[in-house]
Design a protein around this nucleic acid. Sequence first.
DNA 1: TTGACATATTCCTATATGGGTATAGCTTTG
DNA 2: CAAAGCTATACCCATATAGGAATATGTCAA
Lengths: 115, 115
Amino acid sequence: MARAATTTDVFNAVAEPRRRQIVDLLATGERPVNELVEQLQLAQPQVSKHLRVLREVGLVTARDAGRQRLYRLHPPALRPIHAWVAGYARLWSERFDRLDEVLAELTEQGDGDDH
Amino acid sequence: MARAATTTDVFNAVAEPRRRQIVDLLATGERPVNELVEQLQLAQPQVSKHLRVLREVGLVTARDAGRQRLYRLHPPALRPIHAWVAGYARLWSERFDRLDEVLAELTEQGDGDDH
DNA sequence: TTGACATATTCCTATATGGGTATAGCTTTG
DNA sequence: CAAAGCTATACCCATATAGGAATATGTCAA
């Protein structure tokens, strides 16, 4: 067999540097493909393809605005990654041991929303 | 061009499900390839190959023990991923807003070690 | 030393991209 | 309606795997 499809897994989607760049660019807010192309110094078709992947894993959403299409970041899609890595964070920093406690407390208090 | 080499990037190394499984198995402690093969239900050569990738990105270290080779997890290698994702964590949970403050405080106090 | 174990490599194959280029599909403007 | 602007797709190509199978390498046991 070959590799697993990147399109169905957030880990894979984000493993591609360009796509991480796109995510970073969208961190500040909605952006048209147009602008991403410019910032990334990459051909428009390539950018559209990366956006497609990001859309399929739920990391971004699109909205039509005239002849442009505005893309917006959807952070919650990163949750699986965060959840996985966070489990190891305390293994390299003692600070996170105390953090576990803090988190536990905060969790009891209120509930964070999902997207 | 084609894809970037998975062997030089932790994000890519961990994008592969099997390799994440290996990391998880090593989370509890040192393990011989032998045992990983059994747990993963995967052929030995494949496991050795995945271990090679993990070794090259610094996620695991190996130690010879008789005819076995014991692999040990090296969590700090996950730092880049954690750093990147953590930045987005507060975007899906308000709890993390307060967490930012807590982190800032803890950072001032003492410094965590690196591996 | 020979044979059983435990791992790492090598070679081969099918497949999933990532980028390049051309083009189709829409929308707005003149 | 025609021209121009903005995106998404369709193809084509080179390349990096992930697995499979066989084999090389190194170590311990009889």
